[in-house]
Design a protein around this nucleic acid. Structure first.
Lengths: 342, 342
DNA sequence: CTGTTAGCGCCTTCAA
DNA sequence: TTGAAGGCGCTAACAG
């Protein structure tokens, strides 16, 4: 049905190799035949068959994004999709496509999927959620010299390339802001020790306190799930301490909502009596009362950089890329400093 | 580097066609050679080159999801990514991959991208956001008999296949709930006439009122943007009416947040004095005060169905699929009926 | 049951 | 500047 290079050659009265030449812009073609061929291409609506090109060029101009796309994930983790959008954008600029590799939840199956994708040459490179990277995957990636970037540093030391945000720096930004407002008793609510991001943010929290000559107190650190009751329960205990905090750093905006509810029950005012800062600028952050001061991370541009880095690795597979890109920034709203009058 | 079918054939001491046979499970192969070949495959870690297979089979086992992946989209519209996740899941089960076709914001460029994807045979089918479908795209899709499903009914009448949620039915669910609680003066806040979904939901709102013998009042219908001040402003006017509503249906949960703030300023209680229902069950819906009663739509399963439908069209391209899948359901929370004690 | 052969559509030397 | 020819890795008749 669709036109092939042969059809174009016939219509332009040249051989297929000449057509191929003008299509790949290798001049050495007389301007008259060049034009004839261009016309034929336009007339026939000719676009090269991508499988044939991939086969002979040994490149699919496709990159895979390997992650798990389970139901409801976009609601709990829109960040991930902003990263995908960013990398897609960057890749597209260079003529690459982004394909999704929907990883099975079972690690063995996921490994198999990745190996399969690499060996079948479905893609020229892979972006892969660092969380899913196992030593077995590292081995195959390294052995085949397959261009890759892990999104988020893998949980074990490795020679893989990765890119990550500086979560520790994010905490630092938040703490610096709170300290500048005169706060000295800063609590940290939410998250779980099992979470890499939590550990990094917690580290930044502690380091930043120390840097500001504030001694960290264990009672001020409260990991919790996102369950509303649990958050309220824990926050209540926190506020009942002999020396309650004067400000709270929340692991995410959902936690913040719970914390705020608990604070209301104590009839404390935000930000006059207690300030709140949280991570992640969800669309509702400015809408809740009080509007949330937030440390935001530009995930889209993380994706952009990941895409650009992968493109570099495709050019030069033995290059090692391991970077923290520091993109957090503070968005100041009513939960720390009163701006707007409602 | 990677093994080819030739390597396997050599190692197993057979011809490549025999290898091909066992790989595609067309028996007619003696069990002894079968085993020899399997062993060779395993030993060499052989996986067929997908470009070569695509070229000869004329099928890439890839499907495209065409939409615009601009920065921040996942936060404003996580639904879209839940649909993507659902379709990816369905497709994967049948051995298909989902690739992203990141549409340019300019309609002409977007058309070009789609045409290019079809002609280059990069994919066997396409899922495409109905919003981006133009008559030009319809023409090429129909002319090439290219398997497609529009996600969301296109804005013009067409012979394309599409799948959509029954937004009108969603409204009906909400109204029925409110009426069952004894409400008679039901307002509808938020959305824009230019929005297809708005028009459908609005239609459902009106029809449902009529079905319940409630006469719609123009003053109760207030389209607005998601800007907080605007929402509050409009809601305030609504509440100042001689006969204010006893319940409000909000176009989405962001609107609901603004509406609730405005109501607070009037010192009205929710749900005692006024009830709130909104669309879309965002993660924060249960967290805000009061927790929101919501009509939720299972977008993941919409994706699942879209994927399944596309697969059918790939089998049978001339099949016409145009369905409203009715998946909304009501999640009852404190903004209409008091459940929990805080 | 197995091997030979002819492509799929394109790129790329190598001659002319 | 152009054309002929030989693959890329695989499948699918067609013989044997």
């Amino acid at each position: 049905m669709a036109a092939t290079i042969k059809d174009v050659a016939k219509k332009a009265n040249v051989s297929i190799s000449t057509v191929s030449r003008v299509l790949s812009n290798q001049m050495h073609v007389s301007s008259s035949t060049y034009k004839r061929i261009q016309d034929a291409v336009a007339e026939l609506n000719y676009i090269p068959n991508s499988s044939a090109v991939s086969l002979v060029k040994k490149s699919s101009t496709t990159v895979l994004y390997a992650d798990s796309f389970y139901k409801g994930r976009p609601y709990e983790n829109p960040h991930m999709f902003d990263i995908i959008s960013g990398s897609s954008h960057e890749l597209r600029k260079k003529g690459y496509f982004l394909g999704l590799l929907d990883l099975d939840c079972s690690k063995e199956k996921a490994e198999e999927q990745i190996i399969n994708a690499i060996q079948s040459k479905k893609a020229d490179g892979i972006l892969i959620n660092g969380y899913y990277v196992t030593p077995a995957i590292e081995k195959i990636l390294l052995a085949t010299d397959f261009p890759h970037i892990c999104i988020g540093k893998p949980s074990f030391d490795s020679m893989l390339s990765w890119i990550d945000t500086n979560h520790s720096l994010s905490s630092n930004l938040a703490i610096t802001h709170l300290v500048s407002l005169g706060h000295k008793k800063i609590a940290f609510v939410g998250g779980s020790d099992k979470d890499n991001i939590y550990r990094d943010r917690f580290l930044g929290y502690r380091l930043s306190l120390e840097r500001n000559n504030l001694s960290p107190r264990d009672a001020y650190v409260i990991p919790t799930s996102c369950n509303l009751e649990e958050i309220i329960q824990h926050t209540t205990e926190l506020l009942r301490l002999p020396e309650p905090p004067d400000s709270i750093l929340c692991f995410n905006s959902l936690i913040a909502v719970g914390v705020i509810q608990a604070i209301r029950q104590f009839h404390l005012r935000i930000p006059e009596d207690i300030s709140i800062v949280s991570f992640d600028n969800y669309p509702y952050a400015p809408l809740i009362t009080p509007s949330l001061t937030v440390v935001d991370i530009d995930m889209y541009s993380l994706g952009t950089r990941a895409g650009a880095s992968l493109l570099k690795k495709i050019q030069n597979p033995e290059m090692l890329i391991q970077t923290y890109t520091a993109l957090p920034h503070l968005i100041q709203r009513d939960s720390t400093v009163l701006h707007s009058e409602t």
